[in-house]
């Protein structure tokens, strides 16, 4: 699809991308956003559909390790990318430390913002294993939460970071 080739509006496109570590081939309508591709074509509804305009952060996923908004990302531009969503975190029945910490510290109430916050937090901790509270606030400033008041979100990320560093169990 790259280079000079034209993608035409009426024909489905077929492309490969990595989703949660698995090489995936998918065929879809070319106007779709990554959010629509994940939820509608791949059945991965963990990534939430909020405002669709970049104004809430509920749809944040990791693209090549960086938190980005799936609602403003053309799916055709994800060819060859590695996409990580909330579904990829748990190992079998065992929760990822971030998921466990959100449950333990009240970081998630209605849960609508939680996948976006957790993926953003994972993006942060993958690069910076020991962020200050200030840095956690800064990194998650692109996601609105209408329930928690944010304090518990920061607590949860701080605890998960400590656990990931092996300081708590």
């Amino acid at each position: 699809m790259s280079g000079t080739a034209r993608i035409e509006r009426r024909r489905n496109v077929q492309l490969r991308l990595g989703v949660n570590g698995e090489d995936t081939e998918v065929s879809f309508a070319p106007y779709k956003t990554l959010l629509e591709l994940l939820r509608e074509d791949l059945g991965l509804t963990g990534t939430k559909h909020g405002c669709e305009l970049g104004e809430c952060g509920a749809c944040a996923v990791l693209i090549d390790g960086e938190p980005q908004l799936a609602c403003l990302k053309l799916a055709i531009e994800c060819e060859g990318c590695s996409v990580e969503t909330i579904e990829g975190l748990a190992r079998g029945k065992e929760l990822h430390p971030l998921q466990a910490a959100f449950a333990d510290h009240g970081g998630s109430q209605c849960g609508y913002c939680t996948p976006g916050v957790i993926m953003t937090a994972k993006g942060l901790l993958d690069h910076e294993p020991e962020p200050s509270r200030e840095r956690i606030r800064e990194a998650t400033a692109g996601i609105l939460c209408r329930c928690t008041g944010y304090q518990q979100i920061v607590d949860a990320i701080e605890h998960a970071a400590a656990e990931l560093r092996g300081e708590r169990k």
């Binding site: 280079g3 080739a5 993608i7 305009l53």
Partner: peptide, 10 residues
């Protein structure tokens, strides 16, 4: 809110 149709070049 779907995107309208478009052709795409890269």
């Amino acid at each position: 809110m779907r995107l309208p149709w478009f052709d795409y070049r890269a």
